[in-house]
């Protein structure tokens, strides 16, 4: 009897939670604010500037969603989450979406009850060495001392890579990226390994960046993307298609500079459908027809966001690489807006 009551309560609360979860769009609209989980600070991806305004590549995704849903890219409250707190913050409803350089893996998608809305950055683990070592390839690293952050997937990838290639290494465990930079510069390790985007950001902060080389080998797949709670398909669709709109806009040549002109109507039906002058794609999402115009106007299309936050003109200086459009030999491929 007691057990039945317990199960009943559990089921009821699960139903309640599910019902609450299906209303993220309404909750966001009634709050007038999107609550977006970001990293506590990762160069180029999310960081507060001197005025306390968050900037970065991951932040731009939040702003685009806020612009699409609320019409104001600044209507975002950023919640800084750590690697440990990010998923529970999402599951508990403290944040509406998570845009925090989070790798899309099966267990995170299925077991932790998240829905990944797409991939905004294709990353992978790389190696950085001092040029004085004269190493040109990760295959020559046998016997090296390696600075590695403990408790991360990079640690496991590193072990796999050296085992598969029959090489030896000596790990120097470190806790944070900041500590790693100091240890590496002080010569405590020959090699520093983490995600390639992180390596580039780290190298850019060195007094003599030219003395350090990032090796060509990428030893893991790290597809990073925004995530939302499982069970609210409408909200997941909005985030997914906002991201797709940013990517498609670059492919179609829609930029923050020419968007007003194009939104009036063009000869290209795909652009017209994207920008709402033809069809009613926004209505299908539960938004108005200008949603994509606002999302793209917030910080530009995918290419513009990339260039202004982490691209080659910034101190971080990442090349597009895998993150180029599929027409340019990259992996970015937005499904058709139809």
């Amino acid at each position: 009897m007691k057990k039945t009551v317990l199960y009943g309560t559990l089921a009821a609360s699960a139903l309640l939670a599910g019902a609450a979860g299906a209303q993220t769009l309404e909750a966001v609209q009634s709050n007038g604010e999107l609550s977006c989980g970001v990293s506590t600070g990762l160069a180029g991806f999310s960081a507060p500037d001197a005025n306390g305004v968050w900037q970065g590549f991951d932040v731009a995704v939040c702003r685009a969603v806020a612009a699409a849903v609320l019409g104001d890219p600044m209507a975002v409250s950023f919640v800084s989450t750590t690697g440990q707190t990010r998923f529970s913050a999402l599951a508990s409803g403290e944040i509406d979406m998570l845009s925090r350089n989070t790798t899309w893996t099966l267990s995170r998608d299925v077991d932790l009850g998240n829905t990944f809305a797409g991939i905004n950055y294709y990353d992978g683990q790389g190696f950085m060495v001092n040029r004085e070592l004269g190493v040109g390839s990760a295959m020559e690293l046998s016997g090296a001392t390696v600075c590695i952050q403990t408790g991360t997937t990079t640690e496991l990838n590193l072990a796999d890579f050296f085992r598969v290639n029959g090489m030896e290494y000596e790990p120097v465990p470190i806790e944070t990226n900041a500590e790693a930079q100091q240890q590496y510069l002080a010569g405590a390790c020959d090699v520093y390994t983490t995600d390639a985007s992180g390596l580039a950001a780290t190298r850019a902060s060195f007094p003599e960046p030219g003395n350090h080389a990032i090796l060509p080998e990428i030893i893991s797949k790290e597809p990073l993307g925004p995530a939302v709670r499982q069970g609210d398909d409408q909200w997941a669709d909005i985030v997914r298609w906002t991201l797709n709109a940013l990517i498609a806009a670059e492919e179609l040549g829609v930029t923050s500079a020419n968007i007003e002109e194009l939104a009036a109507g063009t000869d290209n039906p795909e652009i017209n459908r994207l920008l709402g002058s033809e069809g009613d794609l926004g209505g299908m999402l539960g938004l108005d027809s200008d949603w994509a115009v606002r999302a793209i106007s917030a910080a530009g299309n995918y290419g513009e966001i990339f260039a202004s936050t982490i691209g080659e003109q910034t101190p971080i200086g990442l090349a597009r690489g895998l993150n180029a459009q599929w027409t340019q030999g990259g992996l970015l491929y937005a499904p058709p807006f139809r």
Partner: peptide
């Protein structure tokens, strides 16, 4: 800092994440 509150140490990380002050 471990639960994502930005105390001085947390903010020092956030400041360092700004490309101007990285390093």
């Amino acid at each position: 800092v471990f639960i994502g509150l930005l105390d001085p140490i947390g903010l020092s990380n956030a400041i360092r994440a700004d490309t101007n002050w990285n390093g």
